[in-house]
Nucleic acid binder design. Structure first.
Lengths: 513, 513
DNA sequence: GTGTAGGCTTTTCGCCGACAA
DNA sequence: TTGTCGGCGAAAAGCCTACAC
């Protein structure tokens, strides 16, 4: 009557069990970059509060700063015992000296991670067939050939047993077979049991990872529900990184690519489970208040961070904040921001314009840069719920080709565009020469105006017209950009798409980059 | 892939749903008697803390009294949404006046409950076959004929559909059939689903109850694990009632009757579920501290009480405490105490001797009567984990036949035996004539000594010898007791058992009663 | 190259009387 | 009276190919 788990090893009963950092990162998603131990971060109680359920009233507590400079003293990579959801326990030590050496970010870890070979991993969103039918899993060829152990194709049919370790160290057994016409890779025996035990439904993702020691690991990323369909708090989203290279590093699945791709809800069953997956309610309010109070008093504290909660990181590496705060944010500025695709397989950049620069919650958190920017997206449908973003998560786009700066090169000199709406510069101590505003770049506005006009007349734009505009406006820059393919893939243009909307998107991409 | 629940009604999604008090009591067990609303109880923060996980340090808080007189202002009978475990939310209002009229206990409710007809209910511990094999449940005849709706025996075979409401008001459907050779009652279709949904295993109990309105209700009592086998904290046990009539009223399964009766653990599956079933960790430490602090400040507060946790009640009716505290507790005193049998079907009395009278935690709770008595059990094997008990849960045994007193008769005059080890009398205000020690009952000691000698020479006792002793010591009392069969069933004596240990047990029972 | 439908085999479920304690 | 066993028919699970996109 009791389903016996098809696992070889029983999980060890430890009080606090950390898991392999590589598997953790694979489950967290490609954009999440955790700050290395001993690096400096800014802690945002306001952002921490978004991790909790309901509204937290800090009113009764002594004024807590909107952001506090801290040193990361320890990180524990963990996974929820029930849901396998990954989270991290971060120990932080507040630093008295908010004004510290600019480049001394302690972020040596990033380089280390960058240089160190990333373990091969593969994520796939479960189809209906994967989750429901007959207990089989269709293995994409890439995954079978790159991640799975080498299969002996001489056998007829080629079969092998695959052992994969989950986030708890438990080992799951699958039968991997290569068969059918045309031939394809499948997981059969063992898969159904895995789906049932982990309560997976179509839309959830599975992550296979080949660890450094050769072990195969398996993690899961549960689909976020209620984004396209149900009500989603307007604050819900997650993104991290932006102004520094690499330009992303932490995010969460957000927009819906294809409305009818799958049915995210199974019939009943794990409704209770789903509640905790939608951003809010990850941590208790008391923990947030406790952390914020300790932080404000300069005492060491611990935060729990759920990388897949639909809320931005609240411990952001110090240099990102400083870089972002040096910019004179103005409405009208064009920017791009990275998001994870809904199936967590890729990263997409979305373009937008700053519509307002305004403190999010002036009563409780005056002068807080948290969610400072109100934005209008070029594709408003896909990002309906993202109304306000953190400055350090966006990357300004100018008429200049993007130059990626390493974290050790001097901070990029951003063009000062229009008039500053929000004089945050000066809040943070920094070398004086950097806060000097630079001359306006009129040409950018010209381009923008031109193409916005074009956008208002849909249907008349095509690639020729684009060339025509770029020539007629005498903007060699645009021509140059059309020749570059740094950020979009050219195959999308051939054959030239007929829908003007698509062209517009491309035009805007070109223009922006 | 996802099992759909075979229930007729979906549970209504209420925030706080109370359940029928009768079903609650049936699930809580026969010994649990909740104080009526408006009655007076003593609240023990120390006992409350035993409901919580880990050790609670009250050190940082202003001195909290060991016990506080409170009025019960409200009781909500509830059940855990996931496990169906019953618990109660008790609202308490501290009373300033600790010295109040003795008999004014407000316990009118008890009589009401006593007089009111108890609804017919039946509990059965699931056998392996009930829980595992083929999805059927063997219905004891008594249950089928008394609790279930009348079956039409003229049909061939006699079948009916049974609808039973669980603690959440959800209705479960079972096929009840009377068949086989020899004929027996069985639940077939629907039973397996119930077992799976409720995650029942062999050893858990099911309770059927016929409510006053004729509805059939079904509740579950999960088996306590780790008592005979695993490590159990020495504090773990539960019993209530004792000094007042009825002599029990609240307890918990505790001792193991037959070691090899069933295998309590299923293979994997609900290990997580089990953790919360073993006494500790029912409530959060913060709730306990909050309750205790409010109580100490005279403010109304709320406690959550799990009747099936392996820890004694921490809200005890005031008169029980007062009665118990009037006794001059001494080592050497003989007593009996009620426990629930492991299968929750009956109540057993265990005999013991007080080995020491000593405050349990003199540092944190000086002068607290909580777990005041250190005891030595006559059957130490079965009660290994019960080292210290609350005075109000034991009943002193003398050489006089037990007289059951109604709660309205004057407090029984206990014999003063030996010298008092712990002068608790005087802590509580009471009529002065009651605190006067009475004369020693030498005959009791004579009996005790005689039989303790007999016990030290095992193997020579048999029923004849018992008669011989009782005659030779010229104790007509013992002869009288041998003729009575009020507490043990006579079939055990025929044929006369050969094992001297069994006889000793009987002798002690007879002697004690 | 991979998702889905449907056939068909294998396994499990679960109802039953026999038998024994 | 009721717990457990093995038999057996029904139902579900799950492996497979065919076909579609």
């Amino acid at each position: 009557m009791i389903t016996v788990m098809n696992s070889v090893n029983k999980p060890i009963n430890e009080v606090e069990k950390c898991l392999d950092s590589q598997l953790w990162h694979a489950c967290a998603g490609g954009m999440v970059q955790m700050p290395p131990v001993n690096s400096k971060i800014f802690y945002f109680p306001q952002g921490h509060a978004e991790h909790a359920q309901g509204n937290i009233d800090f009113g009764n507590f002594p004024r807590i700063p909107a952001l506090l400079l801290c040193r990361v003293s320890a990180i524990k990579y963990m996974a929820d015992t029930e849901t396998d959801e990954v989270y991290a326990k971060i120990k932080l030590v507040p630093l008295r000296n908010n004004d510290c050496d600019f480049d001394d970010d302690g972020f040596l870890g990033i380089d280390k991670i960058e240089n160190q070979e990333k373990p091969a991993s593969f994520a796939k969103t479960l189809t209906q067939s994967d989750a429901n039918n007959g207990g089989g899993f269709s293995v994409p060829r890439y995954c079978a050939e790159t991640i799975f152990p080498r299969l002996d194709y001489s056998a007829e049919p080629p079969v092998q047993t695959i052992l994969a370790k989950d986030v708890h160290g438990e080992i799951w057994k699958f039968r991997h077979i290569y068969r059918g016409t045309p031939r394809r890779h499948l997981l059969t025996t063992g898969w159904s049991n895995f789906v049932n035990q982990k309560k997976l439904v179509a839309g959830d993702s599975i992550v296979f990872l080949r660890a450094e020691n050769g072990d195969l690991c398996v993690g899961i990323r549960r689909a976020k529900r209620g984004i396209g369909g149900g009500p989603e708090p307007s604050s819900g989203w997650s993104a991290l990184g932006g102004n520094c290279a690499p330009p992303y590093g932490g995010y969460s699945a957000f927009y819906r690519e294809d409305e009818n791709k799958f049915m995210p809800h199974g019939k009943g069953g794990n409704a209770h489970c789903n509640e905790r997956l939608n951003g809010k309610g990850k941590v208790r309010s008391e923990s947030v208040i406790e952390a914020a109070t300790l932080a404000a008093n300069g005492q060491p504290f611990e935060v729990v961070y759920y990388p897949r909660a639909s809320t931005p990181e609240f411990s952001v590496k110090a240099s990102s904040i400083r870089t972002a705060m040096r910019i004179q944010w103005c409405s009208g500025m064009r920017f791009k921001m990275a998001f994870e695709t809904e199936d967590s397989s890729r990263i997409s950049w979305f373009m937008g314009t700053i519509s307002n620069v305004q403190v999010d919650d002036p009563i409780h958190w005056p002068n807080s840069p948290w969610r400072l920017l109100q934005v209008a997206w070029d594709e408003p449908d896909l990002l309906q719920n993202v109304k306000r973003v953190n400055p350090w998560l966006v990357e300004l786009v100018s008429n200049m080709p993007t130059i990626h700066l390493s974290p050790f090169s001097p901070p990029r000199k951003k063009l000062r565009l229009l008039q500053p709406d929000f004089p945050l510069v000066g809040q943070f101590p920094m070398p004086s020469h950097l806060s000097k505003p630079l001359g306006p770049a009129a040409s950018f506005i010209v381009y923008q105006t031109t193409f916005l006009q074009a956008y208002r007349e849909p249907g008349i734009l095509n690639l020729d017209y684009l060339h025509q505009i770029s020539t007629s406006t005498n903007c060699s820059q645009v021509c140059f950009l059309l020749g570059s393919s740094s950020l979009i893939t050219l195959p999308h243009l051939e054959p030239p798409p007929s829908a003007s909307w698509t062209i517009l998107k491309i035009v805007r991409m070109f223009l922006a980059c």
